[in-house]
Amino acid sequence: MKIKTLEEILKKKSSKTEFAILTNLENGDSEIYLPGTSPKGEFSKYADEIENFFKSKKNGVIENSEIFVETYIKPIKVIIVGAVHIAQYLVDFAKNLNFEISIIDPRGYFASEQRFPEIKVINKWPKEAFEEIETNSSTALIALTHDPKIDDPALQYALKNKFYYIGALGSKKTHENRCQRLAEAGFNNDEINSIHGPIGIKLGGKSAPEIALSIIAQLVSQTYKK
């Protein structure tokens, strides 16, 4: 691989672009491929096979050839509501797992850049904040404020937009009250039950990093169930 190709790969990764690396295993030539374009030079006759690898999001050697295809897909977007202590640990875990994190918190003293370097922190109420974030059914929401004023509008938005994972921090009692408010707002039982509350798998820990670990474990397991 050429140093120039490596630099290009890192640039594509940091700009969250989807791409594939094509390598000729015989001569070592490698090339970056963007989905929907025509592969260049020696790779051009494998256009259909490369596109198929991309569609199935798989890596591998094209049958009866010496061409290796490695696909890179966009990181999963995770929106955290509440720039709280647990969120700081979630950011650490998410970095190693390559989730793309955005944090929403209307409270300026929480949502400071100093507390969350290199993370997109939106210092607005959820309703306005969601106007700035592109979301779809591959987006996850983690609500951590346990303040209905802040969490509820975000949970409602996530339910309406069919996020694949929705979790909300709070005790059983807090969650019961939350479910009741959502029912009053017109959400049905299936929708309400799809919220993971109290959030996280049962680990037994109570500290901020332990709770963050239990949340991230649940998020990863739900990612593979989809």
């Binding site: 490596l6 630099e7 890192l10 990764k13 966009k74 990181p75 797992l97 390559n98 591959s138 990612t223």
Partner: peptide, 18 residues
């Protein structure tokens, strides 16, 4: 859904080359 886990080995390769 496939996750996009990435072990950042290529990032480290760049650091070593630098």
């Amino acid at each position: 859904m496939k996750n996009s886990f990435d072990e950042k080995i290529l990032d480290e390769a760049q650091d070593w080359i630098n």
